[in-house]
Amino acid sequence: MNGAHDMGGMHGFGPIDPEPEAEEPVFHHDWERRIMALNLAAGAMGRWNIDMSRFARESQPPVQYLSNSYYQTWLAGLEKLLVQTGLVSESELSSCRSEGQIAEDLAERVLTAEQVPTTLGRGDSFRMDDEVPAKFEVGDTVRVKNRHPDHHTRAPRYVRGHVGVVDRDHGVFVFADENAKGMGNRVPQHVYGVRFSARELWGPEASARDCVYADLWDGHLEPA
C-alpha cells in the first residue's frame, strides 16, 4: 500500500539528530521493553507471520503512523493483530478485562522463560525448499512493475517503474506480498538483489557513481 511507512526519497523530515552511540540505551522507557516482549510472546501463538505484522503496523492512518514513535506503532500493530485473529475480542481490548482463557491448544504454545533463548536463537523460516525456476539471472536488466496494490508490498514506491540490474540471486523465499494476506499463503519465489543507479532513481543531479540495492521478488519484476 502507498502508506506513510514507504518513506524512501521523501523530503521534509529534517536532520537525523542521532543520539551519541555510547549514550543510547536499548530502550528509552520501560514500556518499550514491555511492548517488545509482548510482541514476541503473542507472536508465539502462531496466529500471524512477520509480513502480517508489518502490514498491521503500516496500515494505520498516515497521520497516526507519522506521529507515533516506533514502539507506539508496535503497540498499535499488536492490538490490531490480536483482534483480527480473534485472540482478544474488541470488548476485552477496550475494557482490558479477560472474558476467558485462551484455548488449550494455544496454551501449549505459551512461551516460557526457558524457551526464549532457543526460540530467538532458532529464528524464522523465510527460505523455502521448493525448486521454483528463477525468472531472471545475474546480469539481467529488469524493471520493477508499476503497480500500486492497496495491500502489503515490499517493493517501495521509489523503485517502481525503474530499471535495474540483477546483482545476485538470493535463492527462494516466501513471497512477502502474499504472505501478508494471512497464514497459509506461502508462495515460493526467487529474491534478487537489484542494483539501481542513483541517476536512474533520482535524475541527472544525483551522483553518477552512487547506487541503491533493493531485494525484490520475481513477482515485483519484469524484463526490461
Binding site: F126, P156, F173, A176, V191, R209, C211, A214
Partner: peptide
C-alpha cells in the same frame, strides 16, 4: 562509490 542497501526482503 556509495552503495545503499535497502533491506526490503529477509536479507
Amino acid at each position: 562509490e556509495v552503495r545503499v542497501w535497502d533491506s526490503t526482503a529477509e536479507l
